[in-house]
Amino acid sequence: MESEERVIILITTTLIIVLFVIFIVLLFGFFQKRKNLLLQQQEEAKKRFEREISETQIEIREETLRNISWELHDNIGQLLTLAKIQLQSASAGSLKDVSETITKGLTEVRALSKLINPEAIKNINLKDAIQLEIDRFNRLNFISSSLNILGEEQKIDEKSSIIIFRILQEFFSNTIKHSKASNLEVLLDFKDKELLIEAKDDGIGFSTSENKSTGIGLGNIKNRAKLIGASAVFISEKNKGTILKIVYKL
């Protein structure tokens, strides 16, 4: 009787050990599969992010080239035409005016050279890039623009700067093309752990309840903000302008 009990205990113990080992193996396999899936997802997310950065840099470059084209035609071209007219009717007393026109033209060319430089796009400094856009808007009389900085400026990740600048560039483009605004204001507010960015115009605005993410790229802007762990919120009412608020963790 005792022998049978021992056999039963032995078999039961062996069965429990075998089941336990099988359970551990299955559990290990499950977690290993989850780990591999997570690593794969992380790798895919990294590739998507790098692809988005490349596409964003291309978009910035294309927008920059369009800007240069407009400025060459609308600003520098007019200055050179004016200088030509002044030279044709120049006298000793009017040479000063000719000189001032040519000097202004050279200043505009130097400003354009900053936009043409590919390193300015690759190694973008957010504040300087925004200031170049603001200066261009004012120079071409597109819209009265200003940039204000609050707090102590902190270093921003290069790739995040590219994404943020492209988001603002899209907002600027929508403002100039569609909003019929007279003023554009941009604020960079540096806090201890985050950067608050606010861009606002005094244009015709839109109803956020009626306007979906399509149409003026609101969905695209919000998705790009998520890529860098930021949030983008639009506040707008018809005939009361539009505000874009971005919160980026430093």
Results as ranks from 00 to 15, higher is better:
S3G: 00
L132D: 12
I102W: 05
G217V: 09
N223M: 09
T208I: 13
S161Y: 08
K249N: 11
E108H: 14
T81P: 04
R48A: 09
F142L: 12
G105P: 14
I53R: 03
V21Q: 01
S161H: 10
A83Y: 01
I121T: 14
T175K: 04
S94V: 11
N123C: 00
E2S: 07
S91F: 07
F20N: 11
V186M: 08
I156W: 01
R224S: 15
T175V: 10
S91T: 14
G77C: 03
D74A: 13
V21R: 03
I53L: 05
G29I: 05
L250M: 06
G77S: 06
K33Q: 10
K180V: 08
A232K: 12
I235G: 01
K35M: 01
I243G: 01
S173V: 08
I8G: 02
K212T: 10
G77V: 09
E185W: 00
V25I: 15
G93P: 00
T103A: 12
E2W: 03
T208E: 10
L150W: 02
L26I: 10
E55C: 05
I22C: 05
L37N: 13
S54E: 11
L87C: 00
K180H: 13
I58R: 14
I235H: 13
A83E: 04
S3M: 08
K245Y: 04
T81C: 01
K127A: 09
K127H: 07
R34C: 05
V18L: 07
I228N: 01
S89E: 03
S89I: 05
I17K: 00
Q86V: 09
V21E: 00
L39F: 14
K96V: 11
E119T: 08
R6V: 01
F137T: 15
L147M: 10
R166K: 13
Y248I: 09
S182F: 01
L187M: 11
L82G: 00
T12I: 13
E52M: 13
F171E: 13
L184C: 10
D189I: 01
T101D: 02
Q78N: 12
L168M: 02
F206D: 04
L26D: 04
Q40V: 02
I149M: 01
E63P: 03
V233L: 05
Q169F: 12
A199E: 14
E71M: 12
N211R: 10
E170V: 15
D202G: 09
K84I: 00
K96A: 10
E210L: 09
N183W: 02
K238N: 05
K193L: 04
I76R: 06
E152W: 00
T14A: 11
H178V: 08
N75C: 11
I8A: 08
L19C: 12
L150F: 06
L80M: 09
K191N: 09
I9Y: 14
